[in-house]
Deep mutational scan, measured.
Amino acid sequence: KKKYVIKVYFEDTGKEVEIEAESKEEALEAAKRLAEELGLKIKKVEIYP
């Protein structure tokens, strides 16, 4: 089964997080949740198959 690796870059902090997920949708949801939890804004998202 294919996994996606999503790199999320946050504004202000210069922080980046990698998330593995089964689908792009799932990964983007996780990225949004994470940003909310951390109180950060997402600057850029890169998706690698």
Rank of each mutant, 00 (worst) to 15 (best):
V45L: 03
E46W: 02
L28T: 06
D12G: 13
I19F: 09
E25A: 14
A27M: 02
K41R: 11
I6G: 05
G14E: 09
A31F: 03
K41H: 12
A27T: 02
V8H: 00
E29C: 05
K24S: 07
V8A: 01
E16L: 06
E11F: 08
R33H: 06
E37A: 05
L34D: 01
P49G: 07
L28R: 06
A30Q: 14
K41G: 08
Y4T: 14
V17M: 09
E36K: 09
A21Y: 06
E26A: 15
V8C: 03
K7N: 09
E26V: 05
L38H: 08
E11T: 04
K32V: 12
A27V: 15
V17N: 02
R33S: 07
R33M: 08
E36I: 13
K3G: 08
A31Y: 02
F10H: 00
I6E: 00
K2I: 12
L38E: 04
Y9V: 10
A31T: 03
K24E: 14
G39T: 02
A31L: 05
K2R: 07
I19E: 01
E26T: 07
G14D: 10
E37F: 03
E29W: 06
Y9G: 03
K1W: 01
G39F: 03
E37Y: 06
L34T: 08
E25M: 07
R33G: 06
E22Y: 05
L34Q: 03
L38K: 05
S23Q: 02
E16H: 10
E11V: 11
T13R: 12
Y48K: 06
E16G: 13
S23W: 03
Y4W: 08
A30R: 15
I19W: 12
E46I: 12
L34R: 06
L28I: 14
A31V: 13
E11W: 13
G39I: 02
F10N: 00
K24R: 08
K2D: 07
I42V: 09
E29M: 09
I6L: 06
E18L: 13
K1M: 15
A21I: 14
L38R: 03
K41F: 03
E46C: 03
A27K: 00
K44F: 14
A21L: 05
E26H: 12
E26G: 14
S23V: 03
F10G: 01
L34A: 04
E20H: 12
A27C: 05
Y48A: 07
K43I: 14
K2Q: 09
R33K: 14
S23E: 06
V8D: 00
L40P: 01
I6D: 00
R33Q: 07
E22S: 08
P49R: 02
S23K: 02
E36C: 08
K43M: 13
Y48G: 14
I42T: 01
K15G: 07
K7C: 04
E18D: 13
V45W: 04
T13W: 10
S23F: 07
A27L: 10
K7Y: 03
E37P: 00
E36T: 12
F10C: 01
E22Q: 04
K43S: 08
K32Y: 08
E46T: 07
A21E: 06
A21Q: 02
G14Q: 11
L28N: 08
E25V: 10
I6C: 02
L34G: 01
L38Q: 07
E18A: 05
K15Q: 09
Y48E: 04
V45I: 03
I19R: 01
L38P: 01
A21D: 02
E29G: 07
